[in-house]
Nucleic acid binder design. Structure first.
Lengths: 205, 205
DNA sequence: ACAAAAGTGTTCCTGTTACACCCATGT
DNA sequence: ACATGGGTGTAACAGGAACACTTTTGT
């Protein structure tokens, strides 16, 4: 929660992203604004430290987490900051703290400089990995509609996509399982639900 | 040089690659084998620490250097190991130490486990970045022939390439400057020398 | 009835692959 | 003269982009 006091020489910082209408990240209010971070404790792994930072800042757990880059800590402690980015569907995030909010990363800087850099680089990484890694699915529930998936791609990639081309491309690059269920929500035809075939056994569909 | 003694809690480790006939990395003999590493010193940046590791281990300087990943240091110190990979043309490397050699990374493991993992991931990163980042040029002199460049691509990508397609593709993806000079070397037509147009001013060709 | 998102194929274009011969030189 | 790597174009193919209408539902 505080990586400012001269404690451990290593800290982990986490840019947590989610998607509502836009792409947003978790910002801790106060001062110039920060993202969650925590000093590395004795016997703790870097990833565990990053998860603890999220937990202590906002009572958030069980998110997709990936290491981004390690930055020099500047003068004094921490000597190095290991930056992570995290992804989660918005409805799975119940923030258990006040002084925490969601901010559009494309807006004018709202963070201390080092943290702003982390958020910026995380956005780039996100857009870059979108095509060849299953990160879009991290913003969705286990079962999702192709429309929802397309919205995620459009938001992260910052461009609208053709529906037919999108569906063809997605079905070619990922192994999607069509479930028997559909999602009805609004004055329109219900949308079929899909699941990404991961390490899940093929018999249970 | 030694990251084993319980000193600083952070160390940098560097996998230095070069190309002769094959892709090779720099290995420090003794014990199970290691790559250069050094504990982070007071007031030193991570990158400077990585460069110092190379300098102290083999008197090597002025190489292309990029951060790879940060690993947990396991039990005790160092708490974290920031791994880098480095690239350089072989003829620019005059190793100023003994107990240092070049090893084919595809051969059976010749390093302590953590370092072997670093080398393996560096190889993957190298192959992955080959197409969209100017890393192949880091293995060549400032001026190079297209044949030399193709050899680098073939070695890193581990596949032979068609000469005509390669040249077309390269000239489409990179801004190569054809110099007026050629390299003559062997019983065959001299090869035109090219340069990658980087931040170099356009008037001096 | 109508508004709203779901769903579905074909054509065109562009970029990638496959492929064979002549050129300039050193010995 | 011959062996060696340097240098060049074209045709087939595959993957990506552009594009419009019908379906199913809630109100």
């Amino acid at each position: 929660m505080n990586d400012t006091k001269p404690s451990a020489p290593i800290a982990a910082a986490v840019a947590l992203f989610t998607i509502r209408e836009r792409l947003e990240f978790l910002r801790l209010e106060g001062g110039q604004g920060r993202i969650p971070s925590a000093p590395l404790e004795e016997g703790e792994t870097l990833e565990a430290c990053a998860r603890r930072a999220l937990w202590e800042a906002a009572s958030i757990e069980d998110v997709f987490l990936e290491q981004l880059y390690t930055f020099d800590g500047g003068r004094g402690h921490p000597r190095a900051i290991v930056a992570y980015y995290a992804l989660a569907p918005h409805d799975r995030l119940r923030i258990g703290r006040t002084g925490v909010g969601w901010v559009d990363p494309t807006l004018a800087p709202t963070l201390v400089e080092e943290h702003q850099i982390i958020v910026g680089r995380a956005c780039e990484r996100l857009a870059g990995k979108l095509e060849y890694a299953p990160i879009a699915y991290q913003f969705l529930a286990e079962r999702f509609t192709l429309g929802e998936l397309q919205t995620v791609y459009e938001i992260i990639g910052r461009q609208t996509l053709d529906k037919r081309n999108f569906r063809r491309r997605i079905r070619a690059s990922w192994d999607l399982v069509e479930t028997r269920d559909a999602r009805r929500g609004g004055p329109h035809r219900p949308a079929r639900l899909y699941r990404l075939r991961d390490a899940r056994p093929p018999w249970e569909e």
